[in-house]
Design a protein around this nucleic acid. Structure first.
Length: 817
RNA sequence: ACCCAGAUGGUGAAAUGGUAGACACAAGGGACUUAAAAUCCCUCGAUAUUAAAAAAUCAUGCGGGUUCGAAUCCCGCUCUGGGUACCA
């Protein structure tokens, strides 16, 4: 053994693990189970540091739980459908399949290099017909349960991606993926009734005790439950009724008008429809962002005063959100106030049933009437949710075909026998034809016995695939059913699910929802898919671009050099580089830092330690390579410690029991174990392991008891094993003189008795809460003796002590005031 | 606007009512070396005092409060980040 050469040993150890099926998922019925899952990646090209953080964290916990002697399920897969593949395919003249498969290959290699403990035989690819067959199956089941419907609705439309987006996928009125402004469009779409589960999704949040409170709060707000009243209003001169939901019923005392969307029935079925739409068009053209309204010339009748309330068409009431009918008053909402002022809408007349009142009495009277109606059960309280049904169809090619056919204009699901409906693979896809399925008449039109059958050419939202994969992971090759129910119920719920906070309202809601559906279909037993979640922070880095043909072109920070506060491209200094601030690492901004560079230079273990040590896991991390040397140095020190120790002659060591050191070590192990169980403070755990290493190096130089140090080196290497598995495993094999140390890989047991051996202890002496000195004294000493001893010290001279407070074995505070 | 989280050295950060700055990075000094790298040792929040050591005072965004004792709890403010954005 000589110098620490990570490249060599990591390769060697990885090969050994693979050869010996080290990470094969096994079930030993005597042991507990642990299902550790990191959200599967989208195969975008290269792994970047954001991925690395996610998968390393999962690996640390999975390896730790294995040391705790549990059955481990730690699977991986690829969320392989989606738009970027299509866009990249168009750009590179490939097909999405080839592009995706190529990327999976690259990223798989990188994950292997990081030494993540996956059972690769269980890998899942969502673009595999054997996988999505069961998604189509599930869809048909839901269709039959009447949880699926097709409807023309206002939807969010991204003009750049040419597709529909769910509400959850719209961020600041922009597309979550490409950041283009969203347009509202009326389109026929497939929906899944997530609203039917809204109450359950909200209620069950309280059982998720190990979920980050932040995620729960975001979900709660997103579901947005309110309790209010749905009231029926008559309309002047028209037989139709108008239903209004409001959570503040007292708004009836100050209502000025009613606002409806331009698509409301009253407008769509109006005689003057054409005229009205013409006017609306003019208004819309004028100023897009301004509030506008148009009086519909229809009036509703106030349910209590019986006076008329004008109905306005406005641009801030849309069917897409909650109701498309709302009561407008200046009292509750700033926007409404502005609207009322702008159009000078009159106050409500102080008349009830033709009787004039003074303002105060008028309000009192209305409130009384409202109460009456509630007590008489004429107006009933109703729940209302902000959550809307999930639109699951997309007008793009690279996704799961929706298993629907039209037979003579009648919509039907495909027969289960016929599944999977495979997505045809084309050599190329054309920029002008973004949904080639539509034009592929071989695929979309089937002729059977004079019947003309046409297929649905929309595909699923890719969030469908990621909503149930975790259950499939329990039996990825099972082909009789969606998954092996026995196995799913053994492994579920997920013990730890790891992913980014950005999924709080998207994936993490869909995934809970689909789980609840699967529970109702009796496919799973447990109530929630995951008992614990960690949302790791985002990895950020500097972002740069240059301009070519009036287009922003993002350039990787690796290719940039800073000279005198100006940025230059390393290859071509003439190109003007613009700095775009610090952003999330992503393919779209070309600012992903490839881990390969660091692995090649320092090894995977150093990278693993560094990314965990740099910041608390929930916190965002601005990528800086500066600290990485320190982590490499630490592993080198460890290496040298073991090498030096092994090369030394046993006989030189003096036998001496070191209780003090034992206590120090035990305290560290207790701290580390406690935090490993909670998966918290991982950065501090590394700090503790560093301290432990430094301690052993010191002791080794002092030539203390050979076997004592040997035992502690073993402990140290095991504690480090989840974080830096290669070097730890390698050094352990050297210590044990055995290549297969499987049986010795066990987390050290805590021995609290050692702590009782502690005889002397440090006590902090304070005056008025400020530290003055520290004294070493016998543990559990009597307070009176302690005070006597301290009074001998000069610090208390000339002070009038009024009282003292003693915290046992910790602190004594003398108070003078 | 509303809701949530946060603000600690030159930097990443420890400390969840009890010794503020653990563990690292960077920096400076020294040893080894022809030199570099690597390694090892020392200094490292601020202030003034001292030959030096020890000790002292001030420091956790700002202003108050509770407490023997506050980075931590409470009230008010400033800034930063995140969520929501019409149904009030």
């Amino acid at each position: 053994m000589s110098k620490y050469n990570p490249k060599k040993i990591e390769k060697k150890i990885q090969k050994f693990w693979l050869k010996n099926n080290f990470f094969k998922t096994k079930v030993n019925t005597k042991k507990k189970k642990y299902f550790c899952l990191s959200m599967i990646p989208y195969p975008s090209g290269n792994l970047h540091m954001g991925h690395v953080r996610n998968y390393i964290l999962g690996d640390i916990i999975a390896r730790y739980q294995k040391l705790k002697d549990k059955n481990i399920l730690h699977p991986i897969g690829w969320d392989a459908f989606g738009l970027p593949a299509e866009n990249a395919a168009i750009e590179n003249n490939l097909n999405p399949y080839t592009w995706t498969v190529k990327n999976i290959k690259i990223m798989k290699k990188q994950l292997k290099k990081l030494g993540i403990s996956y059972d690769w035989d269980r890998e899942i690819k969502t673009c595999d017909p054997k996988y999505y067959k069961w998604e189509q199956w599930l869809f048909i089941k839901l269709y039959k349960k009447k949880l699926i419907y097709k409807k023309r609705k206002i939807v969010n439309w991204c003009n750049k991606d040419k597709t529909v987006l769910a509400n959850e996928q719209v961020i600041n009125n922009k597309c979550w993926r490409c950041n283009a402004l969203i347009k509202k469009k009326k389109l026929s779409q497939w929906f899944i009734k997530i609203t039917k589960y809204a109450d359950k999704l909200l209620e069950d949040l309280k059982y998720l005790k190990k979920w980050p409170p932040k995620v729960k709060k975001i979900q709660k707000n997103w579901i947005g439950k309110t309790k209010g009243f749905k009231i029926k209003l008559n309309i002047e001169n028209i037989k139709k009724k108008l239903y209004i939901y409001t959570s503040k019923i007292n708004i009836l005392t100050s209502v000025r008008c009613i606002s409806i969307s331009k698509y409301h029935k009253l407008i769509r079925k109006n005689k003057n429809k054409k005229k009205i739409y013409k006017k609306i068009n003019l208004l819309e053209k004028k100023k897009i962002n301004n509030i506008w309204g148009l009086y519909s010339k229809i009036n509703a009748i106030h349910p209590i005063t019986k006076t008329l309330i004008p109905i306005w068409i406005t641009n801030f009431t849309e069917e897409l959100y909650n109701n498309d009918v709302i009561l407008i008053s200046s009292k509750y909402n700033e926007k409404h106030k502005i609207f009322i002022k702008k159009y000078n809408i009159n106050k409500i007349k102080l008349i009830i049933k033709n009787k004039l009142y003074k303002k105060r009495k008028f309000i009192k009277k209305i409130k009384k009437e409202i109460k009456k109606k509630i007590i008489l059960n004429i107006w009933k309280k109703k729940k209302n949710f902000k959550l809307k049904d999930w639109s699951i169809s997309r007008q793009r090619y690279w996704g799961v075909p929706i298993p629907i056919v039209k037979i003579n204009k009648k919509i039907q699901t495909v027969k289960i026998k016929e599944l999977p409906i495979k997505l045809p693979l084309y050599k190329k896809i054309n920029k002008k034809n973004l949904n080639p399925l539509k034009k592929d008449k071989f695929w979309s039109i089937i002729k059977k016995k004079n019947k003309k059958i046409t297929r649905e050419t929309d595909t699923f939202d890719t969030f469908m695939e990621s909503s149930w994969y975790y259950a499939r992971c329990t039996s990825p090759k099972y082909n009789k059913k969606i998954f092996n129910i026995k196995k799913a119920n053994y492994w579920l719920p997920i013990n730890l699910y790891i992913g980014g906070i950005e999924h709080a309202t998207m994936h993490l809601i869909y995934f809970r929802f689909i789980h609840k559906i699967m529970k109702d279909l009796k496919l799973v037993i447990c109530n929630e898919p995951a008992t614990k979640i960690i949302c790791q922070g985002i990895v950020l880095t500097k972002t740069f671009f240059y301009i070519k043909n009036n287009k922003k072109i993002w350039i990787n920070p690796d290719k940039i050099k800073k000279i005198k506060n100006k940025f230059y491209c390393k290859k071509n200094k003439k190109i003007r580089i613009y700095y775009a601030g610090i952003n999330k690492m992503s393919k779209s901004k070309n600012n992903g830092i490839n881990p390969n560079k660091i692995i090649n230079k320092y090894g995977a273990d150093t990278l693993r330690i560094f990314i965990i040590f740099s910041a608390p896991i929930e916190q965002n991390l601005i990528w800086k390579e500066k600290g990485i040397k320190g982590c490499f140095r630490f592993l080198n020190k460890l290496w040298n410690l073991v090498v030096n120790f092994k090369n030394k002659n046993k006989n030189k060591y003096i036998f001496k029991k070191k209780t003090k050191t034992l206590i120090l070590v035990e305290k560290k192990i207790i701290y580390i174990t406690k935090n490993m169980n909670l998966s918290t403070n991982l950065n501090s755990i590394i700090a503790k392991i560093m301290e432990f290493t430094n301690l052993l190096i010191k002791l080794n130089n002092k030539k203390i008891n050979f076997s004592f140090i040997k035992e502690n080196i073993k402990k140290l290497l095991i504690l480090l094993y989840p974080f830096a598995p290669h070097i730890s495993y390698y050094l352990l094999t050297k210590i044990y003189h055995n290549k297969n140390i499987n049986n010795d890989l066990k987390w050290p047991k805590i021995n609290k008795d050692i702590l009782n051996k502690e005889k002397y202890i440090n006590i902090v002496v304070q005056i008025n809460g400020k530290k003055k000195t520290i004294i070493k004294i016998k543990k559990n000493i009597n307070k009176k003796i302690l005070v006597k001893k301290i009074k001998k010290l000069t610090i208390l001279n000339k002070l009038k002590i009024k009282k003292n407070i003693y915290i046992k074995n910790k602190i004594i505070n003398f108070v003078t005031h």
